[in-house]
Design a protein around this nucleic acid. Structure first.
Lengths: 187, 187
DNA sequence: CAGCTTATGACACAGAGTGTCGTCCCGCTA
DNA sequence: TAGCGGGACGACACTCTGTGTCATAAGCTG
């Protein structure tokens, strides 16, 4: 697809990650990112709506897909299982390159702005889960609640997966989180 | 305490809410808010770190209190009950003026920026709950998980409480949310 | 080759935040 | 009463974000 230099978007992401790690997220300017990527400040904004989004490029707009995956499960699968099986797939996909994700999580942890955006992405995923569950016929309130809690469990599992030394399957992390939450709620 | 006109902070909040309702959050300038409050733009930033925060003035820094309330419950109360009893109190306090809260939620719903900040506030509450639970001796992972889920339940209950026509006790909303989540997780 | 599309550069501009300095008002103290 | 010190504010000045607009160069199509 690309016409000029093939990977403007990828170059911007790489330049941003490099600079953020060198000097910290907040002290890096969009102009500096663009310069290192061989572009102008104006072009940065043609690829990303703001500075934070450059670290969430991959997660962008996969939410319809998530809703479809959940809705695709048959009625023989409970709403809970449809949600968690789907989120297991999502987690496996995201954790394909664990080292990169761990690095990304370090950056996010270093900036309140990035944490704020991370929560937004998680909320979008929760809404997508809720959409899929509603398409399966689950009442709106239940869909919202399960979407929110499943996403919270996903996030906990995801954070722990990116931090562990020995990689263990994401499914295990997610199952542990869900079991923990269930146990804590039923006392 | 106040030296000049007694309520600079409150005047800024009032001016901001008025203007946001008149013309929408995004098209209002901080300079305009300050002007209506009889101050300068620079003084706005002496009271609030940014434009979003003016709508979260009340919720600011009550988190240590929440942690203390949870830790204060004796060992005869389960972690779950300590958390939810505390959040019931918080909800009752926040919903003292339901009309104002409903209005505030309308504003938040109108802006992605404000929704992002709302989630940050909720996350801060979740961390406070986790702090309190850890002080009670709950393992870190459990404290994080319960803090996150309890806060999610709180948020759902809070949103529904601000939207209903006939005011019903917040405790009922929260109990309903928790029961729903538990039911959905245990299939 | 002519015409259309697309990514980009080049300005220009409003607005968010921040640093700094001066000023005015208050309470306190001699 | 005179002076002192601190806290809240105004006045600039400045960097950076984010956006609108227009021009340009490269590719694609007929």
């Amino acid at each position: 697809m690309p016409r000029w230099n093939p990977d403007a978007r990828a170059r911007l992401v790489a330049a941003a990650v490099e600079l953020f790690r060198e000097r910290g997220y907040e002290s890096v300017t969009i102009g500096e990112i663009a310069e290192r990527a061989g572009l102008t400040r104006r072009s940065f904004f043609r690829h990303f709506p703001d500075k934070r989004e450059v670290l969430f490029a991959g997660s962008r707009e996969k939410t319809p897909e998530i809703a479809e995956m959940i809705a695709a499960h048959g009625d023989d699968v409970s709403a809970r299982d449809a949600a968690f099986r789907t989120l297991t797939e999502v987690g496996d996909y995201l954790l394909h390159d664990r080292a990169a994700q761990a690095l990304r999580q370090d950056l996010i942890a270093s900036s309140l702005e990035l944490q704020e955006r991370e929560r937004t992405k998680m909320a979008a995923m929760g809404a997508a889960v809720a959409d899929g569950l509603r398409a399966r016929g689950l009442p709106v309130d239940d869909a919202e609640a399960l979407g929110a809690v499943a996403t919270e469990a996903f996030h906990l599992a995801y954070l722990r997966a990116t931090r562990e030394a020995e990689p263990t399957p994401f499914a295990d992390h997610l199952a542990t989180s869900v079991a923990g939450i269930t146990r804590l709620l039923t006392v």
